[in-house]
């Protein structure tokens, strides 16, 4: 339909052009040919008069449809294109990552809780089983006890008596003066009444027992030697 319409218009245009050219060049055309063109023009006119309105209407409607389609396309493009574009962009970023690794669990902890002990501040606390430690340390060592002869004992008693008889001294002084074994001998001597220790305030006085001694209050004193052993 549209093609016919174009052909007709083209024919009209060609006829019009032909006559304009001939008139300009002042060339006369035969009556026969002129009549033939006139008939053709008349037919075209008749056809156009019948169909023009239909064709035009159809064309306008077609344009309406095309316009509608174009509008829809543009609208969809505006709505969807930016969304789909940005989604594919974010996926592209996602695909190109080599992420850091962390364990599953509570996501984060403040770094301040990670208090590290500096080596100089390190303190060694005793283990709960100290008895085990004691034997563990001494496993390879021999435990020896000193056996005293009677002669040794007598000389030790004499030694203690020389150091202490008729002397006053504080407990700390006594601990520094006598060794462990001498303290043991002192303990033995006082229990056997070979030497009497009398407390005078914070000082202790040693003397020989006398026959006039009456009833006295007896008490005990714990001593531990702090005397430095000679190598």
């Amino acid at each position: 339909m549209e093609e016919d319409y174009d052909v007709l218009l083209l024919t009209l245009f060609e006829i019009e052009k032909k006559y304009k050219k001939l008139l300009k060049k002042k060339i006369s055309l035969s009556v026969e040919e002129s009549e033939k063109d006139r008939e053709q023009t008349s037919d075209i006119y008749q056809y156009l008069m019948q169909n023009r309105e239909k064709i035009l209407d159809a064309e306008v409607y077609e344009d309406y449809i095309l316009m509608h389609e174009l509008r829809e396309e543009l609208n969809l493009e505006n709505i969807l294109k930016s969304k789909s574009r940005i989604k594919s962009f974010s996926n592209f970023v996602r695909k190109n990552a080599t992420p850091l690794i962390s364990v599953i669990g509570k996501k984060t902890s403040p770094y301040s809780i990670f208090q590290l002990e500096k080596p100089e501040k390190l303190t060694i606390k005793p283990k709960i089983d100290e008895k085990y430690d004691f034997w563990d340390i001494r496993r390879d060592k021999k435990l020896e006890s000193e056996i005293l002869t009677y002669g040794d004992l007598m000389s030790l008693e004499k030694q203690v008596e020389e150091k202490l008889l008729n002397k006053e001294m504080r407990k700390s002084e006594l601990e520094k003066l006598l060794s462990s074994i001498e303290l043991e001998v002192l303990s033995k001597m006082t229990s056997e009444k070979k030497l009497i220790a009398v407390s005078d305030g914070d000082k202790i006085c040693f003397c020989k027992p006398s026959s006039e001694e009456g009833a006295v209050m007896s008490s005990s004193l714990l001593l531990s030697s702090k005397k430095e052993e000679d190598e």
């Binding site: 695909k95 990552a97 850091l100 690794i101």
Partner: peptide, 8 residues
């Protein structure tokens, strides 16, 4: 860090 591409 992961040696391969993986979602962050």
């Amino acid at each position: 860090k992961s040696n391969y591409f993986a979602p962050p």
